[in-house]
Design a protein around this nucleic acid. Sequence first.
RNA 1: GCGCCCGUAGUUCAGCUGGAUAGAAUAUCGGUCUCCGACACCGAAGGUCACAGGUUCGAAUCCUGUCGGGCGCGCCA
Length: 588
Amino acid sequence: MKESIENLLDRALDQLIADGLIETKPALQITRTKDAAHGDFTCNVAMMLAKQAGKPPREVAQAIIDTLVDALGENDAIEKVEIAGPGFINFFLAQESTLNIINDILAGGDRFGESNAANGEKVQIEFVSANPTGPLHVGHGRGAAYGATLASLMRAVGFAVDCEYYVNDAGRQMNILGTSVWLRYLELNDVKFDFPINGYKGDYIYDIANSLKAEHGESFVFSAEEVFQGISADEPAGGDKEKHIDGLIERAKALLGPDNYQIIFKAALNSILNDIRQDLEEFGVHYDCWYSEQTLADRGLIQKAIEQLQKAGHIEKRGGALWFLSTKFGDEKDRVVIRDNGQATYFASDIAYHMDKFDRGYQRLINIWGADHHGYVARVKAAIGALGAKQEQLDILLVQFANLYRSGERVQMSTRSGSFVTLRELREEVGNDAARFFYVMRKCEQHMDFDLDLAKSQSNDNPVYYIQYAHARICSVINQLSEKELKHDIENGAKNLNLLTEKHETELISKLDAYADMLHKAAFNAEPHLLVHYLRELATLLHSYYNAHQFINEDNNLHDARFNLIIATRQVLKNGLTLLGVSAPEKM
RNA sequence: GCGCCCGUAGUUCAGCUGGAUAGAAUAUCGGUCUCCGACACCGAAGGUCACAGGUUCGAAUCCUGUCGGGCGCGCCA
């Protein structure tokens, strides 16, 4: 519909140019009206042209409409066109043309709303990618819900989306994890010492240590003297906690030997990674690929990436280190990729990782990061620019942290003290549906307050229940049919849609008609919250309609038409909830 | 100090590629169940769009500055 209005106006503007009234055409903006009194669609082009035409906007609008008269006569879908306000051109659609959406929805079923607007363009979305050093917490949850929902939305408009989790299974943090597990294992074997201040202290570390003990007995036991002799003091003893833990890592490797160290390291990694996978799977977040950072080094890709940058002249040696000249690509300072001790930096891995994404055939990348990583945006974009890609091929979306509130009080969290709320705890407390819904309720760059009491309340305050109830309510009405031994004839309903003339009905139909446009916008702008708001509005219209009119009606034609309408509404509610990863229950 | 994000009703948030009277939920107040699920509906009230300039037919929206909040500025990951 929007397209045909656009065509009409485009032809009208051509005519105005031919008449010499204007010289150039601005980009047409045709939008749905907010107020039904303004018709169905509106265009502001007359106001945009007022200046170059040298006439008041309303006169320009009149000139446009005058050239449209013939075309409008032939167009059955548009009932009338009006000039309103400062110079808006408002289009009022004929009832019949919007009624058809009901048939479209019933025919489309679960796939209604989908399109191929993106023509199957291949996209990779990388999200969560939390270090496998502990369970996911509620901060990761927002990225998970947002990424998974964005993937669904983009698939719905025709992108070929792959979801990926980058596993940081290399580097110092992982060694600290492995060493922490080993130390806890020693404790379980009655070795006495002070646990390092910088080690991982969560209960899950004990769990891993316990299974290690069960499987390997005392094979990894050493005395406290062997472990701590010559290690620089920890912070409470007046030393440097970083040096202390690094010393312990080296000691672990030396005492255990590479094979046994790997056994412990892998046990820790696999245990936590499996936990993360299971957690996300239960949350309805699915990945196509779990990409290991370690394999980048193993396959020589870090080397390859740096060589490629070197060949292109973007690497410089300063002191003993290799620097990537990222300032040439918009970064605020150059960055080290190989330290003077020969070790590659984390950033070097990141460069290789993104190079490999392009090598795997993705032309468009989306990274979803926590907002605390915004300082890395410029350098990663610089890197892909230096590798010969366009910076626009990578979108980095930043998700703000969510603050939890319980009983009106902010839930204090800190990783250091280990007092963070895990995603699993959140899911158990409020349920997957509410968690998925609440996380995407707000724009991602907006700080959000997550009200736990509201999320788990089964009341009218809770928007999840409000929408789900609209769906269940329609199911319930349909059940009434068989209980009352009544029927619904879809064919007859389709023939009698023109009986749906109540205000509640036209508003509902108009909202259904807006679904596909909304989906398109939500997907292309990466704004799942638009779908949340849409579903709430749709549910409101349904509830109002329900309270104002009886669907089961003595007039069979009206009865059938109304059932076509509410079944279509149920379908759209279900499709939308499904995209959000929220269930559409038939009873609650 | 520099950089990024944010500031809209008592509260939580939409609206931001400039458009009509700034919307919704919640809280508050008042109504609606002999009727398909009241987990709902109807109504009232609630605003210096942080502040000050600027751009123009028109600014919550764009620009500049100020104030306030969050985050980031390692040869860490």
